[in-house]
Design a protein around this nucleic acid. Structure first.
Length: 267
DNA sequence: ATGGTAGGACGCCTA
């Protein structure tokens, strides 16, 4: 059976609810993982998602900042909302669901952006980001009692040379510094995770999922970065059918600065 | 070399 999972940093789920509803009508993924919902649970628009056919929702939300939500047409079971770096930030949740007779563990992450200065000695936000990536070593693809794992989200790091518009010009820019990209790739490999976007679209093809709001013309300058990711355990990677990156979504009315990424599987 | 935009807690923090 086909299975589709989308990830999208929505940058306020309440402000962009009409955009999400339109996305769900058009692309109808089985599960959508949102990041930066920017609201606590009590303000989450459950009814709108229920009416759109997504009756199953797991949330880790806080006032004003961060927050992740996993919404689903399929039944999901909340596994954990993990407090990385013990700051009380809402940046992770995991659920299980069943598809094609398999039980799959699905992680939804929002990794800290890390501020502007790429020096952990003078910038606590950058230190927090590096610590967060280190702590992610505790999240491995081996799924325990489940049959496989998927990890998606805004991981705020563009690990490969062709994940940014200019490798050379971004080497000292937070999201693409060697200390981040090396730690990130080491963590991914140690966890047994497969980078599904790059499995589908190998280097040297440029791939971006985020374009800054600060560009005068995002499409013309096209200075993007691949900050959003879809990983899985090796057995699930073998079932990947396609990856769709909805670049057009960056040009929608009042867009997020991130676009949806959809992974399609045959399970 | 700098500043540019967006969102939420409407003043300033985060991205």
């Amino acid at each position: 059976m086909p299975l589709s999972i989308a990830t999208w940093n929505i940058n306020s789920v309440r402000l962009r609810l009409p955009l999400v509803e339109s996305f769900l009508r058009t692309y109808a993924p089985d599960i959508l993982c949102l990041q930066e919902i920017k609201c606590p649970e009590e303000f989450f628009p459950y009814q709108a998602f229920h009416d759109a056919g997504y009756a199953h929702v797991a949330i880790s939300g806080q006032k004003g900042y961060h927050g992740v939500a996993t919404i689903s047409r399929l039944p999901i079971e909340l596994v954990e909302r993990r407090d990385f770096c013990a700051k009380g930030d809402c940046r992770h949740l995991s659920v299980t669901f069943e598809a094609g007779g398999l039980k799959i563990l699905l992680h939804n992450f929002y990794v800290p952006a890390g501020g502007d200065e790429p020096d952990p000695e003078i910038n606590w936000k950058f230190k927090h980001k590096l610590d967060f990536v280190q702590e992610m070593r505790g999240v491995i693809a081996e799924a325990g009692e489940a049959n496989g794992s998927i990890l998606v989200g805004d991981l705020n790091i563009a690990p490969l040379e062709h994940d940014v518009w200019s490798h050379k010009q971004l080497l000292k820019v937070v999201s693409h510094t060697p200390v981040e990209t090396e730690s990130f790739e080491a963590m991914r490999k140690a966890g047994g995770w497969v980078d599904l976007i790059r499995q589908a679209i190998p280097e040297p093809e440029k791939i971006y999922t985020w374009w800054s709001y600060r560009a005068a013309d995002w499409a013309a300058s096209d200075r993007g970065r691949r900050l959003d990711h879809v990983w899985s355990s090796a057995n699930v990677a073998g079932k990947l059918a396609a990856i769709d990156i909805l670049r057009d979504a960056r040009g929608w009315d009042r867009p997020s600065d991130h676009v949806p990424v959809i992974a399609r599987f045959d399970v």
